[in-house]
């Protein structure tokens, strides 16, 4: 290769390295801070003078982590499954059905995407209260079981599959459910994984809505748990403890990401259909 090609490659790598550091820095800083004393965190030195491992045992004694993490993990998982199914069904209809008012339906769905989430808090809260499922995980999960982004995202992925394959499957004798499950899903699997991961992380990190809906201590999620114990508490803020709690809370997400990253990164490379 000529020099003309090499130079920009170095710049590219440099750019990627710098931006990677920018993104990963807060994360590293959080982990390192979890070993510092509270005052050291505020002083802003990068490396801890001394590693205070006891921070971890202290924090694990203070709050019921296993309950919170379990709550967060399983509600996020169920929400993710619901979102994947509901988005897939809705997107299938939008991508492959022909009916009057399809564009309008899609338009209305997309329009709701523009409404800020906070606007729906009050009406959904009232609805959950009337149904008597406020302060239950079921109510919380149901209120998040449909994602407009998910519908939009899967619709775009499904459109790439192509109409003819679906028609071919129909003539081969497949029902809509079979087409979705045996043809469309395998072809768009990476989109499902991506949507699943994004949904899981989003719900695992969700803070305001669960704080409004889930009141009992044993039902709270990890985000609200950390906030209650360390930020809104009367004990004052112990920053090193907050960092410890945040670090522990991140572990399940990292695990999920590590397991699925192959799919997450593979993108939509397997959709080569036309010759």
């Amino acid at each position: 290769m000529s020099n003309r090609k090499k130079t920009p490659l170095i710049f590219k790598h440099l750019f990627l390295a710098v931006s990677s550091i920018l993104f990963v820095f807060p994360f590293i800083w959080m982990i390192l801070s979890s070993f510092k004393t509270s005052s050291e965190v505020l002083q802003g030195s990068f490396w801890p003078k001394e590693f205070h491992w006891e921070n971890y045992s202290e924090v694990l004694e203070i709050i019921p982590f296993h309950t919170y993490i379990f709550n967060s993990f399983y509600t996020s998982l169920l929400i993710t499954i619901y979102v994947l199914i509901s988005s897939a069904l809705f997107a299938y209809m939008l991508a492959f059905y022909k009916f009057k008012g399809k564009e309008l339906t899609f338009g209305v769905v997309m329009a709701t995407y523009m409404i800020p989430g906070a606007v729906s808090y009050v009406p959904v809260y009232v609805m959950l209260a009337k149904m008597g499922i406020l302060n239950t995980h079921f109510g919380y999960i149901i209120s998040l079981a449909v994602s407009v982004f998910g519908i939009f995202y899967l619709r775009q992925a499904f459109l790439k599959v192509g109409y003819e394959i679906v028609e071919a499957a129909k003539i081969d004798g497949a029902s809509d459910w079979k087409i979705l499950w045996k043809i469309v899903f395998p072809v768009t699997r990476s989109s499902f994984v991506t949507l699943g991961l994004v949904t899981f992380i989003e719900n695992y990190n969700n803070y305001i809505w669960p704080a409004l809906v889930l009141k009992d201590n044993d039902k709270k999620l990890i985000t609200n748990g950390i906030a209650d114990y360390f930020i809104n508490s009367s004990l004052g803020r112990d920053w090193s403890h907050i960092m410890v709690a945040s670090t522990i809370a991140t572990v399940p997400l990292l695990l999920v990401f590590l397991v699925l990253q192959k799919w997450f990164l593979s993108g939509v490379s397997d959709s080569g259909i036309k010759g």
Partner: peptide, 18 residues
């Protein structure tokens, strides 16, 4: 379509890629 007992060949083949 599935109950008409027909088979169809499409212009762009429409093979299942996976």
């Amino acid at each position: 379509p599935k109950d008409r007992d027909i088979a169809m060949v499409f212009q762009n083949y429409a093979l299942y890629p996976h």
